[in-house]
Write a protein that binds this DNA or RNA. Sequence first.
DNA 1: CCTGGCCATTGAACCAGGACAAGAAAATGA
DNA 2: TCATTTTCTTGTCCTGGTTCAATGGCCAGG
Lengths: 192, 192
Amino acid sequence: MYEAINRYIGLCANFTPGETSYFNSLLQFRKVKKKTLLLQEGEVCNFEAFVNKGCIRNYYIDENGAEVTLQFAIEDWWVSDIASFHDRKPSHMFIETLEDCEILVLTPETKEELLHKVPKFERMFRLMVQRNLSRMQERLFQTISTNATNKYLDFLERYPSIPQRVAQHYIASYLGMSPEFLSKVRTRLAKK
Amino acid sequence: MYEAINRYIGLCANFTPGETSYFNSLLQFRKVKKKTLLLQEGEVCNFEAFVNKGCIRNYYIDENGAEVTLQFAIEDWWVSDIASFHDRKPSHMFIETLEDCEILVLTPETKEELLHKVPKFERMFRLMVQRNLSRMQERLFQTISTNATNKYLDFLERYPSIPQRVAQHYIASYLGMSPEFLSKVRTRLAKK
DNA sequence: CCTGGCCATTGAACCAGGACAAGAAAATGA
DNA sequence: TCATTTTCTTGTCCTGGTTCAATGGCCAGG
């Protein structure tokens, strides 16, 4: 149950067995069915979840009702709305399971306790957020500078397992194009 | 020289006067002239800079030579390529002063020393990166979901001082549109 | 006080991708 | 199993934004 997450934290810093098992003791294990909303716009996000199994996405909905997917979180990813989680303020995001999932959850309280007792975890979370940020920077750059076909090709390369797991229109909403157009891109690519 | 940055760190955590002045002693003060490249693609970023005075931008250049501005850093902002800085790997970014600047600089060594001696700073850097990340998430959402006019209006609201300080085509490259089109957007808005 | 080099503006032609609609295919579930 | 819903495809038309080119304003440096 904790192998994956312990492997993950091991890559960020060296923790003693005691620290690791203390960390594990703070995590809540949850099974969640497909198509469950873990967070809705307006709610305060009260979790940071590590995905043990399954696939989760977070997305925004714009004023026309169109969804923009921010992230697909699969095995070994964290998912949360950190801004809402950290500042205890209402979120603008939705977080939804796309498959039956198993997750390990920290709450604001358990995270605070963890950081207080084992400050070394500050570093882990900093590294985690840093990686996220620089990924986000690349993504913004790509969103602005690249056309639909290349965005899709790049997505395939970067996340080869996702297209087999999630519906195509979610990918379109991640790439910032209409589902119809993604379909056209795909047929064009297939013809070559 | 240190008022601004000490105010900044004070908002993140409580530091003793000793910790604060130790922190200050690690910072390098630098004056940099307008239009200086602090970082070029291919170089390893060896600084995290706090802007005491002036305006700095970081940007990417895409395969067609078009610039995409990621951020304008003015007073009280940090600027760096964290991915390159942290992993000591070549950057894809450019960082350039747009005005004569005064900055306070941490190097990988001084930052490491700081974190080692005063681990409380881990938290400060985590919060800094977190804020950056959630800002980036909003921005990606807006980039995908909003039209040019609203992007510009939103920019004016969020960064009212920037348009008076930097050339318009930099703003266009931040907003992900051509300078010509930003100009057209502006005249349209002015007519109302 | 010129002058050369940005910079912003404007217009015309063009195009990548969106919106809409209608079917086909696939997944879901009773 | 069949029926219903969801997803994907395909075609047509449309538009927001790009590209290219020309013009004029504005400094900054000699």
